[in-house]
Amino acid sequence: MCMGVKCSKCSGDAVVYLPYGNENLCRKHFVDSFEKRVRRTAREFRMIEKGDRIGVAVSGGKDSVSMLYLLKDICDSMRVELVALSVDEGIMGYREGTLKVAKENCRRLGVEHRTLSFKKEMGITVDEIARRMDRMGTCSYCGVFRRWILNRTAREMGLTKLAVGHNLDDAAQTVLMNFLRNEPFRLARFGPRGGIIEHELFVDRIKPLIRIPERESAVYSIIKGMDIKFGRCPYAHEAFRNSVRAFLNEMEGDFPGTKFRVFNSFMSVRDALGESFGTNGTPGKCRECGELSSEEVCARCQMLGDLRGERGKSF
């Protein structure tokens, strides 16, 4: 029988190796490290403050459920209210399972949970959109619709912030993609906190996992017994992001710490990007839905219009 690898901090059996720190960690020390990093990020960017009412976007995947556990703990210690919001995009054979995980974990934690539906709010599901679009385009519709529903619901519920499960992998990909596309102006509004803009119609986004590698939120979810099904959305075919993801994973394998360095480099020039490209413009209201929009008609309403036009009538 082979001897097991031991934790770098104690004599316990290691459950994970973190190449960027060249350390093996046991369950206890990994959980301590993970939670400490999330708490530090939340504190550094003042993500949760007294008087807040926090909404957590919970898809039922490892990132959002791990975030829910951490935020529940932080919010309880600060006596801050927490509500979980899930979106049912209508993806047969995929979303039912993750929504069940979201619901079950909210029940375990005693967190109020609401499910919002594309069919009810938009009149169309992602499966129906995909039947008309090529699969590549489906993600764009889904992303715009999901953000629209979450922002409007969070605002109507009087939530002050909306937590999303973006992790370090997502952040490093976004940074690199925007440089590769020569669209650095998009990064002026990107970061651990904030989003489009400060505006009465916009609920501030917070990203407590932004310094957590995706692989580690999987480890955390397994240790905590969250019963997550590791799988991807059947429409996740965004070619450019997939290429950037594969490149970053290759780089991280060969040069551990690459994702942290990409993100930290971005953070060190973020203020300069904000000054160069401006983040203080005042968007107006969409003339159709009344939500925040930088154009006369917001992206959600334009997309719905396109879909209706394709079909020749309303759905």
């Binding site: 097991g4 690898v5 059996d13 290691a14 459950v15 994970v16 190796y17 190449p19 093996n24 590698p213 692989r215 999987a218 480890v219 397994i222 240790i223 994973n249 290759e250 991280e252 394998g253």
Partner: peptide, 15 residues
């Protein structure tokens, strides 16, 4: 790629 995968040995999560 170890960046995208985890391993269990005899049912236990391991390094």
């Amino acid at each position: 790629n170890r960046e995208t995968h985890l391993a269990k040995k005899n049912g236990r999560l391991v390094s």
